[in-house]
Simulated scan of single mutants.
Amino acid sequence: MIRLLVAEDMHVVRSALVALLGMEDDFEVVAEVGRGDLVLAAAERTLPDVALLDLDMPGRNGIAVAGDLASALPSVRVMILTGVGRPGSVKSALDAGASGFVLKTASARALVDGVRTVASGGQVLDANLAAAAVRLGANPLRPREQELLDLVASGCSVRESAQRLFLSEGTVRNYLSAIVDKLGARGRVDAIRIAQDNGWL
Rank of each mutant, 00 (worst) to 15 (best):
N128H: 05
V76I: 14
V50S: 06
K91G: 03
K91C: 00
F101W: 05
N61T: 01
M1E: 07
N139Y: 02
D54L: 09
I63F: 07
I2N: 03
A130W: 12
D95T: 10
I2A: 09
A195R: 05
V84H: 13
R173F: 05
N174T: 08
G36V: 00
F166N: 15
G187V: 10
A106C: 13
V189C: 01
A127C: 00
I194K: 13
V102N: 01
E8Y: 08
L165F: 06
E44T: 06
T117H: 05
R14M: 14
Q163D: 12
I63L: 07
A131I: 04
A72Q: 09
G170W: 03
L129V: 01
L38S: 05
T171R: 11
Q146V: 12
V90Y: 01
L69P: 10
R116A: 04
P48L: 13
N128K: 09
A110F: 05
R193G: 03
I80C: 10
R193S: 04
A96W: 01
I179D: 01
E8H: 04
L183A: 04
V102W: 03
L136D: 06
R35D: 01
V158D: 10
A130Q: 14
L141S: 04
P74Q: 02
F27A: 08
D25N: 08
K104M: 11
K91D: 04
R86P: 10
A98V: 03
A185C: 02
D181Q: 07
V118H: 02
A19G: 15
S107Q: 07
R86T: 11
T82W: 06
A19I: 02
L4Y: 14
F166S: 14
A185S: 10
I2C: 13
G137Y: 02
A93S: 04
M79L: 15
D197G: 12
P48N: 08
R135K: 14
D68E: 13
G187P: 09
I192Q: 02
L125E: 08
I80H: 10
R164H: 12
V65D: 01
S92Q: 07
K91S: 12
F27Y: 12
G34L: 08
G199D: 09
R144D: 10
G22S: 15
V39H: 00
L40E: 06
D197M: 07
M57E: 13
I179W: 09
R144K: 11
S120H: 14
V112H: 03
V180A: 02
P87Y: 00
P74T: 04
D9M: 08
L165T: 08
I2H: 11
V13L: 14
P87H: 00
K182G: 07
V189A: 15
G100R: 10
S120R: 15
S177Y: 07
L176T: 03
S75T: 11
M23F: 03
R164Q: 15
S154V: 12
V189E: 15
L20T: 09
V29W: 15
S154K: 13
G67M: 02
R77K: 14
G67N: 08
R193V: 02
M79K: 05
